[in-house]
């Protein structure tokens, strides 16, 4: 188990490094004069040259990447022309737009996105797995058919449609919920949850559908396996068969998918954030892409990558704890 953990975490670090190389290369090698972009459209050639100097853009690419890595692990200094700005580790560079540190920028937006993602994750897992199990339990009956249709509809509906419908029904017509206005958890936990409820529900409703389908398919497959047949042939009741002998195996792929989704959700749920005015990472990303703010884009991609890799590692370790054969593989 110890070796498995080391191997798994080592793999995760390697993937992140590889990702950083690819992302760094893709954005900085992209056509266009980086110094010009960083400086802005109204800069004179002299100013552009100065920016190029500050950003070490004359250095070979591998050296630039080395500086970038160095910034990540030890921090680095930027000359602002008049003085020196120290960017603390993990330093992802400075925003071209605002000269703010990218790390600070992302950290400021992350709590809102994390709140949205984690809450919705819990809801959609419960909803998706629950619906999947229910349709297995009721297989061959009308309930299953109705659930299948609802799930299909859920997969086909974009979040802004469901979100708008919910706003119209719950906020405007019935006035049960307030129109969401993000309140940080640290300020007022109750208001935080109350305001996020609507975004959570919207996001969960659109995300749950694939989980329902997967849970159903995986459960039916597991129930047909030989070892389930064994316990059925030994008089074990259906509920224990599902709960004790099928669920664990059936949920493995569902959890793997969940890890992927929750990880990428940390990179921002752009539509949901925009719809409900949540000041999260997703909106920041859209903004950065629009203004070709390369350090912010690179930083956001890396942070998203970090969470995807982290969530996957956690899922794998959970899986290994549940099924010891994984460790041997």
């Amino acid at each position: 188990m110890k070796w498995f953990l080391l191997r798994r975490l080592g793999g995760a670090v390697f993937v992140l490094l590889a990702l950083s190389v690819v992302v760094y290369a893709a954005f900085y090698v992209a056509p266009g004069n980086v110094a010009q972009i960083a400086c802005g459209p109204r800069c004179s050639p002299a100013q552009v040259a100065q920016v190029s100097e500050q950003l070490h853009l004359g250095d070979p690419l591998y050296l630039q990447y080395a500086h970038f890595l160095q910034g990540l692990f030890t921090g680095r200094d930027y000359s602002t022309g008049t003085g020196v700005l120290h960017c603390q580790a993990p330093c992802l560079g400075l925003s071209y737009q605002s000269d703010q540190q990218v790390t600070e920028l992302i950290l400021a937006k992350l709590p809102a996105t994390a709140s949205l993602a984690l809450g919705a994750f819990v809801l959609w897992m419960l909803l998706g797995v629950g619906t999947g199990l229910l349709s297995v339990w009721r297989r061959g009956r009308p309930t299953e058919r109705v659930l299948t249709w609802i799930t299909l509809a859920g997969m086909a509906t974009p979040v802004f449609v469901i979100g708008l419908l919910l706003i119209i029904i719950l906020v405007t017509a019935l006035q049960i919920l307030p129109f969401p206005d993000y309140v940080p958890l640290t300020e007022d936990p109750e208001q935080w949850a109350w305001n996020l409820l609507l975004p959570w529900i919207s996001l969960a409703l659109v995300s749950a559908a694939p989980y329902a389908r997967m849970t159903r398919a995986s459960m039916l497959e597991t129930l047909a396996e030989d070892h389930v047949r064994t316990f059925r042939a030994y008089g074990v009741g259906e509920r224990a068969l599902v709960g004790r002998h099928a669920l664990r195996g059936a949920l493995a792929p569902v959890i793997a998918l969940g890890a992927l989704d929750i990880g990428s959700m940390f990179g921002g749920a752009v539509l949901t954030e925009s719809l409900f005015g949540i000041p999260g990472v997703g909106r920041e990303l859209v903004d950065a892409v629009k203004h070709v703010d390369l350090p912010v884009v690179v930083g956001l991609v890396l942070v998203t990558g970090f969470f995807v890799v982290l969530a996957n590692a956690v899922a794998d370790i959970l899986q290994a704890m549940a099924d010891r054969r994984v460790v041997l593989a």
């Binding site: 030989d226 047949r229 064994t230 316990f231 042939a233 030994y234 002998h245 195996g249 099924d323 054969r325």
Partner: peptide
Amino acid sequence: AAVVFQDPLSSLDPY
């Protein structure tokens, strides 16, 4: 009445 199946690996719960 108890039954013994053919494939002993897949017939036991791996977990």
